[in-house]
Amino acid sequence: MFKGLQGALSSLGHRVIEGIWRIGAGARLFSYICFYLPEIFKRPRLIVREIFSTGVLSLLIIIVSAFFVGMVLGLQGYNTLQKYGSSESIGVLVALSLVRELGPVVTALLFAGRAGTAITAEIGLMKATEQLSAMEMMAVSPVARVIAPRFWAGVISMPILAALFSMVGVLGGYFVAVPIVGVDSGAFWSQMQASVDFRDDIVNGVMKSLVFGVVCTMIALFEGYDAPPTAEGVSRATTRTVVNSSLAVLGLDFILTALMIGA
């Protein structure tokens, strides 16, 4: 029994130490990325290429998902609101749900699944095939050339994708609320215009998506950069990217919401 307890404690200690080590290594990688920020401005073409890979190629999944999410919100919202005789407020419900919460959160989750995994797998494979080592031996920093452009591309792409998600989601809600269930079009838009506040709702949503952009891209990059250079290592790193990003987004969403409501 004593041996079993000792083994469990040892295993727990090992996991804690490894967790702390990974946080430290991630922070160090983040500091290198910030250090190489000026390099990015010298070669903006690198960022543009990465924005295409992470942002533009994620557009389809974001737009399609947003439309469906908006339609579901429209249906569910109407179903509930009509019980209280306030079905005209459906526009407000859809817009606030999307701009404050669903836009940034669902975009970040989709981003982690689509772009995050692609980033982790690409960097992990570059490591496994010694491409990053080759770069180092050519006196070119892989952080400056490979990691930093992907990071800034992710940070730039996320708020734009979240804004598009919210916009398309509102259109999805409108599509269900106005032509299908017959809510008045003028009431839908005017109540939305009157109730959605630029600073409290839109700016806070953009801030959330910026934070999620930093966190999701950083997790994807670190997992790829830290992946053991084997098929299994890259596969596990890709899984960790999705799991850790999703947990981080949901956890941070609660903290950010609490701070914003408190503010």
Binding site: T129, Q131, E136, A139, S141
Partner: peptide, 19 residues
Amino acid sequence: LYQLRRKMGMLFQFGALFT
């Protein structure tokens, strides 16, 4: 180190070409 590496060239086992 980077200055020193500019004096070196290295051929990796499987080429390590940028794919």
